[in-house]
Every structure is written in structure tokens, then in C-alpha cells.
Amino acid sequence: MNDILTPILMGIMLGGLYALISLGLSLLFGVMRFINLAHGDFVILGSYLGYGILTYFGFDPVIGLVISVPLMFGLGFLIQKYLMSRAFEVSSDTPLIIAFGLSLIIQNANQIAWTPLSRGINTGYSNASFFIGSLQFPVVYLLDLLVGILVMLLLREFLTRTYLGRAITAASQDKKAAELMGINSKRVYGYAFAIAMALTAIGGVFLGMTFPFTPTSGISFLTIAFGTVIIGGLGSMWGTFIGGIILGVMQTLGGYFFGPASQMLVVYLIVLIILAVRPQGLFGR
């Protein structure tokens, strides 16, 4: 009994991380109906920023977010303003191809800057663990879950309570009506993209503390993030969170039953099956 409890609890905590790295993708899809193919690479960029801040300045990567979040926020705003806003005017396929180009650039820039070697963010508490009953878990996993919940709740409050958040919600529900109400949709999209990027900076740091990563890991985490978003239904923050937990538990249970090497295969197969059977998501309309 305790045997199977370990993968389930690990999966739930892992789900917190998956939700965390998916919130940015979910937000962008909700607002612009756009799936950012470079999302995984942005997350990995966030991991490298955390790694770099730790290695060169010696700051704890969580404190380092003070630097990397504004950096990614600004980058996101610029990308939306100078690339994506134009891309959406050309054709519906253009943003997709531009995102693919961005993915290529980030991946190879990471490779040039940090070499293709596998890296991990090692902090003082990386190897610490805690107990639930007699079961032992890494502290980092608990941190993943707590930060995942915290960021998700903050984002939800932001979207429902602040003016900018409401403007983003309005633009995502009906762009034209929002514009008639005096909302500058271009600016709102810029902020939405910037917030999504800031979220990937947070997700990247916690990802880097949980898993080793390489410049080409982006595509695996894009798949996970996409799976999370699609299980939870699009654009809903709670749905994303639940999607993350479902995917996390499925992965650890897959590892438990079929051996650790097949964990990721289980995730990919679930994403494919859901896409084929219910592309609008389990909780989608």
C-alpha cells in the first residue's frame, strides 16, 4: 500500500511543477488563441538564467528571480510588440512559424552560451528531504507544489481583481467588444505575453532545481505543458493546475508500473490520446 502511495504523492507534487511551467502557455492560449511553440525553450532559458545567476553571482536562484523575472517580462513585451503583433497580421500560420524560429534561436543561443552539457541548479536544500509518515520525499518537490499553487492563485487574483487583469480577460473573451469598451488590445496582448514570459522564468528555475536540463530539453517540456493545458481545458487556471497534477501522477504511476525509463512515453501517449479523443480537453467546453 505504501509502495504505491509514494509515486502518487510524488506525482501530485510534480504536478505542481507542471502547472507552474504551463501557466504561461495557458494564459497565452486563453488570450490570443496562440500556442507558443517556443514555450519549452523559454522555460529552459529561465532555467539557465537561474543557473547563471547562481553560478556567477552566488545568489539563491529563488532570490535570483528578482533579476530574471523582469528580464523575461521585458523580453516578452518586446517579442509581442515587434514580432508577434506583426505576425498575426500576415496570416494564421505566420505566428506558428515565427515561434518555431524563436525556438531555434533560443535553443542554439543556449547551446553556445552554456554548452550542450546537462546542467542542474544545485542549492543548499537540493538534497534535503522530508517525511510523510515513513515515506521520504525531496524538499524541492514540496516547493514545486507550494509555489505552483501560490503562483496559480496569484495569477487568478490578478486576472479577476486588477484593471489590467480584467482587460486581459475581456480581450480574451471578445476582442472587438473589449476594444469598443476602450481597451487597447495591442497593449493588453503585450502585457499578456510579458506576463507569460515572466511565469516561464519562475517555472524554469523550479524546473532546473527538480530535473537536469540541456539546451534541447525545451521540446519535452513544451509537450508536458501542452498536455497539462489540454487536459485542464484551455485558458482556465484551475484547470491547468488540475491538468498538471493528473499528468504528474500518470507519469510517476507509469514509472512505477512500467519502469522509470518509460515515464515520458506514458506522458506522450496520454497527450496523443487526449488530442485524438477530446482535443477540447477533459474539462473543456
Binding site: 514580432l83 506583426r86 505576425a87 500576415v90 505566420t94 512559424i97 515565427i98 518555431f100 524560429g101 524563436l102 525556438s103 531555434l104 534561436i105 542554439n108 543561443a109 553556445i112
Partner: peptide
């Protein structure tokens, strides 16, 4: 890296 930049420029 260069091809990615060319790709984006071409698309725009």
C-alpha cells in the same frame, strides 16, 4: 541560430 534569424526576418 543564423537560420532562425533569417526565418523570422523572411516571415516578417
Amino acid at each position: 541560430l543564423i537560420q532562425g534569424i533569417i526565418l523570422i526576418l523572411i516571415m516578417l
